[in-house]
Design a protein around this nucleic acid. Structure first.
Length: 728
DNA sequence: ACAGGTTCTCTTTTT
DNA sequence: GAGAACCTGT
């Protein structure tokens, strides 16, 4: 292993590996090989310093990064490492909280609530307490609660000093703590935690319980944190409680890539590391191994406009390469079409689709690109928009699994009590709820004792009892049955496949595919689990995995597809060719970020992150008009473009002032879609239902109603603008 | 109980 | 323009 080192790493990277016994701050520029350094450091600890893997804590930003780290570690060491604590903060906290639940106000089989669950809980609270959704809008209230939690403030910790009451929002500011209190009570009633709770309760536990704190200080002898610039106060405190004693902590980050302050991340953590850990040394990695220098020049020029940063200049030995190109388009449709044409051109030049990414600020921008790719037969993967786990059929199935694991979860039980329909309507449900609250029972306990409720009709009682018995049966089985078998049994027993297959609505048919994909994802999870732990995973192992899984974690790199994603999702990735689109005022920087200097700097970092993803080709663009909701808007080029020297872009050598290049006419005009062209017998394509044949056309233009026979065998009436003619 | 229609609300980024 | 909430007729 020694010899590999010297060749694989530069001097600073080597220092990152070897400096294991004192606090270490690694200021690593984009593409400077920080991940590689971390992996070698980990390998060095295990192989040369004989540190047992279970004594190493390694925090990554995504689950995907954790998985990759483990794979690469295996490649270096030549064997698979078991019992290493590697994962995201949320994942590691879940493990700790499950272990230590006896000290906490919830039980170890707690549910993890995502935003949808949070909202439905909050809506229920609003109803019960007649709260006004106009005066106290849901999302802002949730954001406030989240911000309290990120500062480790539970409702009982709130006082006049930390409430932050403002004049403009007096009423809201005064009421949020009361809603927060109800919300938190309700979570615990359901034996559920939201994402922020995972961090909050872990941090509080480590702060307040000496026994537990000592235990984890002992266990985690070596601590490493990636993307440290995007940690919040709660995360800082968790790390600090564990590492402050032995001080064998290594954090890696780049203040220029901090893009998550909206969820409480504070750049303070990285800027003050040397104050928090007095003995710390700092290592800077500035040589970039990813991009050619024209791209880095642009990146450096962009970030130079930020005032709040450590100064740093990236350089590379990969040669000048291509200059970045800038395009200005008429509207968002043209932007999408021309971008897709460029993608085809790059592909013809020999660049695989998977090496091309289209990045944008907001998820809503993905639609037009998806459409343009579809028309040209360009394979693509959208990361982000409709998460797999947010589809109705998957959420329903997950609600079943959640209730089976955590019967106290009334919220999830309500979701499935009549799904698929089994004749339990709102009247009966209300009577169940009434009985539950009068007798201080959970909804689950209530349905188990449904015979005791006078007000419910005998016929419906029978249905409820059957349902209750099924759940209880699965609940008992789940303790010992592998999760894969359990999931299959639930799907079979509920006859979900036929339920969706026999539906008249073609939208329901695609649900079958999703269920099948879900089963195969459980199967894949099981295989990996068996590989690591030599036993089949149970439901309790699987649930936290799905709850904390994100869209980017599901990306399948084997497929040769173009990637469409937000700039946030692109963090940590790299591509041969990158398109950054929508460089307009109010979009990038986003309207909601334009009110403060600080948040504009964060938007600029977002652009910087995007630019530094590109290895050899970079294309920036904006449109002069953009469709927003249902009308067109004039746009203005992004301030981030205006502040740049035009010479940084190709074709601007003589220009003194910023003048965007008009869209290049060299590229073939795309086949623009004329909606009148739909005709009976035409082959068409629909994003969700796949290929089909037009049987009838009712009306004209984009409003026309098409009757389509899809290959799946079903008929559907669909508005013309949702279908595209099949590419030839 | 439930299907089908209409109105209302919310539209930045995400673990 | 999408999704949820609400309403109405069978």
């Amino acid at each position: 292993m020694h010899t590999d080192f010297k060749q694989e790493l530069n001097e600073q990277q080597l220092q990152v590996v070897l400096e294991t016994e004192r606090p270490l701050l690694v200021l690593a520029g984009a593409g400077s090989g920080k991940t590689r350094s971390l992996i070698y450091r980990c390998a060095w600890l295990i192989k040369e310093k004989k540190v047992p893997p279970k004594n190493i804590l390694m925090v990554t930003f995504t689950n995907k990064a954790a998985k990759e780290l483990q794979e690469r570690l295996q490649n270096i060491l030549g064997y698979s490492v078991q019992n290493l604590w590697v994962g995201t903060f949320h994942h590691i906290c879940t493990r700790i909280l499950r272990n230590e639940a006896s000290f906490l106000p919830f039980r170890q089989n707690f549910s993890i609530y995502d935003e949808n669950n949070q909202l439905s809980l909050l809506k229920k609270i609003y109803k019960e307490h007649s709260l006004d959704r106009e005066r106290f809008p849901l999302q802002p209230v949730l954001n406030r609660i989240s911000s309290y939690k990120n500062r480790l403030l539970l409702p009982e910790d709130l006082n006049e000093y930390n409430l932050e009451i403002s004049m403009e929002n007096y009423k809201l500011d005064r009421t949020v703590p009361k809603i927060y209190e109800l919300y938190q009570q309700n979570l615990l009633l359901n034996n559920a935690l939201d994402f922020d709770d995972l961090l909050l309760y872990t941090a509080k536990l480590l702060q307040n319980n000496e026994l537990v704190r000592k235990k984890y200080q002992q266990q985690f002898q070596y601590v490493m944190i990636d993307e440290y610039q995007d940690t919040n106060y709660a995360q800082f405190e968790i790390v600090h409680q564990i590492a402050a004693e032995h001080q064998r902590i290594c954090v890696v980050g780049d203040d220029d890539q901090a893009i998550y302050s909206f969820r409480g991340a504070t750049i303070r953590n990285i800027l003050e590391f040397e104050k928090d850990y007095a003995d710390a040394i700092a290592i800077r990695l500035e040589q970039n191994y990813r991009s050619t220098s024209h791209i880095l020049e642009l990146a450096n020029a962009i970030i130079l406009n930020n005032r709040h940063r450590h100064s740093k200049t990236l350089w590379s030995e990969l040669g000048e390469g291509y200059k970045p190109e800038l395009f200005v388009y008429e509207d968002d449709m043209e932007e999408a079409n021309k971008t897709a044409d460029l993608i085809l051109q790059l592909h013809e030049e020999g660049i695989p689709f998977r090496e091309i990414a289209v990045l944008y600020r907001t998820n809503a921008q993905s639609r037009v690109f998806e459409y343009a790719c579809l028309q040209r037969n360009i394979p693509y993967t959208i990361v982000g928009t409709v998460h797999f786990y947010q589809r109705k059929e998957i959420r329903d199935l997950l609600a079943y699994l959640t209730v089976i694991f955590n019967p106290s979860d009334n919220n999830s039980l309500l979701r499935i009590i009549n799904e698929p329909p089994r004749g339990i309507g709102s009247v009966s449900i209300n009577r169940l709820m009434e009985f539950a609250s009068q007798n201080h029972l959970s909804l689950y306990q209530t349905i188990q004792n449904v015979q005791a409720i006078q007000s419910i009709q005998p016929g419906i009682k029978k249905k409820i009892a059957e349902f209750a018995e099924k759940l209880e049966d699965w609940h008992r089985k789940a303790e010992s049955t592998p999760v894969l078998d359990l999931v299959k049994e639930v799907i079979d027993s509920l006859d979900l496949i036929n339920h969706y297959k026999n539906s008249q609505d073609p939208a329901e048919i695609s649900r079958v595919e999703n269920l099948i994909e879900f089963v195969s994802s459980v199967s894949e999870f099981s295989e990996r689990w068996i590989e690591e732990y030599d036993k089949s995973p149970l439901l309790e192992d699987f649930l936290p995995f799905v709850a904390l899984q994100t869209d980017i974690d599901r990306v399948n790199e084997a497929a040769d597809t173009v990637y469409l994603m937000t700039l946030h999702n692109a963090k940590g990735l790299e591509f041969e060719c990158v398109f950054i689109t929508g460089l307009e005022q109010e979009l990038l920087p986003h309207l909601r970020s334009m009110n403060s200097k600080y948040s504009i700097e964060e938007e600029r970092r977002l652009l910087y992150v995007g630019v530094t993803r590109a290895k050899s080709r970079l294309f920036l663009s904006y449109a002069k008009y953009r469709r927003k909701y249902d009308s067109f808007y004039f746009t203005e080029p992004s301030i981030f473009l205006q502040e740049l020297d035009p010479n940084l872009f190709a074709g601007y050598n003589d220009a003194v002032t910023f003048k965007p290049k008009p869209a290049n006419k060299v590229y073939a005009k795309p086949k623009t879609l004329n909606n009148n062209q739909f005709y009976i017998g035409q082959k068409v394509w629909h994003t969700e239902y796949g290929p089909g044949l037009v049987l009838n056309v009712d009306g004209n233009g984009p409003e026309a109603r098409l009757t389509i026979s899809f290959s799946s065998g079903k008929l559907a009436k669909i508005i013309a603008s949702y279908v595209s003619p099949e590419p030839i």
